[in-house]
Design a protein around this nucleic acid. Sequence first.
DNA 1: CGCACTCTATCGATCGATCGATCGGGTGGT
DNA 2: ACCACCCGATCGATCGATCGATAGAGTGCG
Lengths: 212, 212
Amino acid sequence: MAVTSGERVRRAAVKLFAAKGFHGTGIRDLAQEAQLSSASLYHYMGTKEDLLAGIMRDSLGRLLTGAERAVAGVTDPAERMGRLVALHVITHARRPEETKVVDDEVRVLSSGARRAVVELRDAYERLWGETIEAGLRAGAFHTPRPEVTRKALLEMCGGVARWYSARGALSLDELAGHYAVLALRALGAREPLAAPDLDVCRAVVASVWGPA
Amino acid sequence: MAVTSGERVRRAAVKLFAAKGFHGTGIRDLAQEAQLSSASLYHYMGTKEDLLAGIMRDSLGRLLTGAERAVAGVTDPAERMGRLVALHVITHARRPEETKVVDDEVRVLSSGARRAVVELRDAYERLWGETIEAGLRAGAFHTPRPEVTRKALLEMCGGVARWYSARGALSLDELAGHYAVLALRALGAREPLAAPDLDVCRAVVASVWGPA
DNA sequence: CGCACTCTATCGATCGATCGATCGGGTGGT
DNA sequence: ACCACCCGATCGATCGATCGATAGAGTGCG
């Protein structure tokens, strides 16, 4: 059994939720994509919303653990920041569907599941915020209103999922490196900018999401 | 007659599409919000999709004319870029609902209406792209892969609609000025950075969308 | 003026289709 | 004999959309 039915359901949901949105995806669409009857779906997914919540918790969890692993033990603020950016960008480029679902469908979650997802996202953003603050204290960064800069950079990097195509001319490393430059420049880091360790970031993404 | 029924329908659609998405908003939701029966809706909106398409065309059109007005006659690339950023940010901060609908619901449009919207968006992005290219040629900007930088900056600035609140501590001018700095730094503009003419940008937004 | 007619704006009722979800009944491996 | 897995049939609710009808504000004519 190469791919289990449960796995097919999960993949169908990620694909369709990303492409048509939660409310735009019907139970029968999911069943067809997963090659199952609509009744059999319920053996795996609970409700449709449970399925969405599971995807979001899982994807956000992987993003968060990935970020923690990528910066573990790194003290230099610029290197930390560069790695956070690269990990974020690589994740969004390699898994645009999961990240689109996470970014666009929070609003459909009812309050219970919403709280868990928002908590994960806040923990993730806190990693960015603390790194920026540390860089400011160390004199490595220079930006007023660091919270605004954090929001801006997160939106910038997350946008990758909306336009990057793996079939394009740009490699993952070029993409991630370029975004790291943009972010560090925006933060007012001193030139010349050192590129973050992309090998580590790529490896962390592979350890969290599986090999490419 | 202070506000016509047609106007109420339009406003209800903008509000609900932004908050719950196109597929998450029912005809009966629209009717209740617009204080009309669901049957009367059809006197004004054509189909539900026509209503969405109209909102998107109108909002994108205003953004595009605003941008053209804001940079008309301006030759200095940094000033042009700063104005484009400021106009974009101010628009997204002042009309988060319209811009959210434009940014998030393109996928539900059927091919006919989709084409018109995508064409408008491409024309808008071309304005950014040409300004960046001009800045590179003039030696005012220094960035590899300007198309990637353009995408990144557009996503960064558009993200404002997802988090900015007019009730927060940040004024529109501070917000727009801050984003202009971030964008110009990312583009590798020479410090010290001159702030764009925010008065003009604010006035243009008011001329296109009405006074605040 | 008064009457017939038209047009806009609105409604309650209802259409066929589709929604998410459930039920009871298989089938096949252990 | 059990249990995980899967399905056809079907549920009540809701979907987007349309129906025929009405109230009221004009409009043209004798």
